[in-house]
Design a protein around this nucleic acid. Structure first.
Length: 524
RNA sequence: GGGCCGCUAGCUCAGCUGGUAGAGCAACGCCCUUUUAAGGCGUGGGUCACAGGUCCGAAUCCUGUGCGGCUCACCA
């Protein structure tokens, strides 16, 4: 019966692959990382969450896993980001390490740290808690001195690998380390010599000064990116690390690193290539030219943590997808709810699909499995409910059937997101507000007034009569007063929400509730 | 030029460690007797880009072709 109970989810497949290729180990190291040279955006998040999912899969197979996240904060400050205040002042820090750049947003002691903190603070909300490694500190503490020496010793080997893909071969006097000048802090330097041991001599290209430093004690030397990466694979014994498609092309940095890692007596990790993600309904780009960046914070404004995870867990890493802020938001929530229903057996599907959906649902949870499904209410209906109550979440929820405390808590979170979406991103046609006593009255003809009065009588009993009778009498309110029904409905929408159209009238009035409707119609 | 990815219903896509196709929207129809980018139910619609190959069997694996896209070759 159950020959094939194996998960075909990509996270599980990669977990298996890691075990297969790396053998049984005491523990497995999974790595991710990025240069905090700007706001970390949702595209960068794809790597973190991808690794987090594989880490979870490995742990569920009973493995010990070390999940490291590398902040490559010993990189150079190459350009001033558009979203930072005081750009002129910041420009004076170009070519220095980003850990020396002040944070003009006042978040932290330096610019890199500011970006790091933003991420470190939000990641636990989506259940991601790696061990952070700060590369600037590692280099300055001399942790990579041996790695750098190894690179110097194997200079020719390294050069050969790099030259294979370069259009211009590296220069004759190229050295595989780069230096931040002790005179200016900038990387505008040239390495002149290496003594075969621990000392290198460099020249500051701006001031012309030269200096000899000891790799074990200096805090100014580092490996260039294409060497830094494989060196760290070896240093941390990395078993798994995915990378973006820009790195994964032939001749890209993953490719050269894989060839280079032997130089450092290491082994290339298992990897996969993840595609970029785009943004829909919000200008289109992850990072607009104005400097506005879509980050995990922005996504969590509209999507709950579970649904956020769902989008990434439910999509194969090597396919591009868009995070939507437009009407697709409705569909995403509906899809998640369907997934949940399948997980709890509330919706029947074939076994194959069920297996897939269940796994995606599990991986979407921030921590632990809920013991009961959410209070299921179509997202669209929830949006209507919230608008009827002008965003008052507690009142909106109180109109619903009984639910458990945990269901109520989860629904609250969803309501916050729904309301954020309505107020910030929903299309104008989608939005409305119930009229109140301060709104100007709609001018009515005698005929129309009579129809409104007739409607009032229908509303008074709408909870007590059959649906069919209710609808019929709705129309009769217009007909009996010689009004075109279409025009009549428009009129009611103008009175109720100040617009020409709205949600289907019958159900809409019922959802509003008798009292509310009568208080509005009662003004006429 | 190299590498990678995509090409499935009108549209957007899912299905891909193989067992002769699904969802949403659109269309059409029915119902709440007729309005709505916002109710409910249902129906139709696809030689799965093309050509070969492996297999009892391929949208799914392999090879080739075409079209589209991304990416690398400077730095990180």
């Amino acid at each position: 019966m159950s020959e094939k109970n194996v998960s075909t989810h990509w996270a599980d497949i990669y977990a298996d692959k890691i075990i297969r290729e790396k053998g049984e180990k005491e523990h497995y190291t999974c790595a991710s990382g990025i240069t905090p040279s700007g706001t970390v955006h949702i595209g960068n998040f794809r790597e973190i969450i991808s690794v987090a999912l594989v880490v979870r899969a490995l742990r569920e197979k009973g493995k010990n896993v070390r999940f490291i996240y590398s902040w490559d904060d010993y990189d150079v400050f190459r350009k001033v980001p558009k979203n930072m205040p005081e750009p002129e002042m910041l420009a004076t820090y170009l070519r220095k390490p980003i850990t020396l750049v002040p944070d003009t947003l006042g978040r932290a002691e330096n610019y890199a740290r500011g970006n790091e903190k933003d991420v470190e603070r939000i990641l636990p909300a989506v259940g991601v808690e790696p061990e952070y490694i700060y590369q600037a500190k590692r280099y300055r503490d001399g942790k990579y001195a041996e790695g750098m020496r190894l690179a110097l010793e194997k200079r020719d080997e390294i050069r050969t690998i790099l030259d294979e893909f370069r259009t211009e071969p590296l220069e004759k006097d190229w050295w595989p380390v780069s230096v931040f000048s002790n005179f200016t802090d900038k990387d505008t330097t040239t390495v002149l010599d290496w003594d075969g041991e621990w000392n290198i001599t460099y020249r500051d290209d701006e001031t012309g000064q030269t200096e000899t430093v000891d790799l074990r004690t200096t805090s100014c030397a580092k490996l260039p990116w294409r060497l830094d990466w494989p060196m760290r694979w070896a240093h941390e014994q990395v078993d798994f690390e995915p990378a973006g498609k820009d790195h994964h092309s032939e001749g890209g940095s993953f490719d050269t690193s894989r060839k280079m890692v032997q130089v450092f007596d290491g082994e290339a990790p298992v990897s996969f290539q993840y595609d970029f993600i785009s943004i829909k309904g919000r200008g289109g780009k992850i990072s607009s030219s104005s400097g506005e960046v879509v980050s995990l914070y922005d996504v969590l404004e509209v999507y709950t943590p579970e649904v956020t995870r769902y989008m990434f867990a439910g999509t194969r890493p090597n396919t591009e997808f868009a995070i939507s802020f437009d009407l697709d938001v409705l569909k995403i929530y509906e899809d998640y709810d369907t997934c949940e229903r399948i997980y709890f057996g509330l919706q029947k599907v074939n076994e194959k699909r069920k297996g897939k959906e269940k796994r995606i649902y599990e991986l979407s949870q921030v921590k632990g499995m809920p013991s009961e499904p959410s209070y299921q209410i179509p997202f669209r209906h929830l949006c209507n409910l919230l608008q009827l109550h002008e965003g008052d979440i507690e009142r909106a929820i109180s109109t619903l059937d009984d639910m458990t405390d945990s269901q109520r808590d989860r629904l609250r979170e969803r309501c916050k997101c729904a309301w954020n979406w309505i107020t910030t991103f929903a299309p104008e046609d989608f939005k409305y507000r119930l009229s109140n006593e301060n709104d100007p009255l709609v001018e009515l003809t005698d005929q129309e007034l009579a129809a409104v009065h007739a409607l009032r009588e229908v509303v008074k009993v709408m909870d007590q009569i059959e649906n069919k009778e209710y609808t019929t009498r709705l129309y009769d309110s217009a007909k009996d007063n010689d009004l075109d029904t279409g025009a009549f409905f428009k009129l009611i929408y103008r009175i109720m929400i100040g617009k020409e159209k709205g949600p289907k009238l019958g159900p809409f009035l019922q959802t509003c509730g008798k009292e509310k409707v009568l208080s509005i119609l009662g003004r006429y």
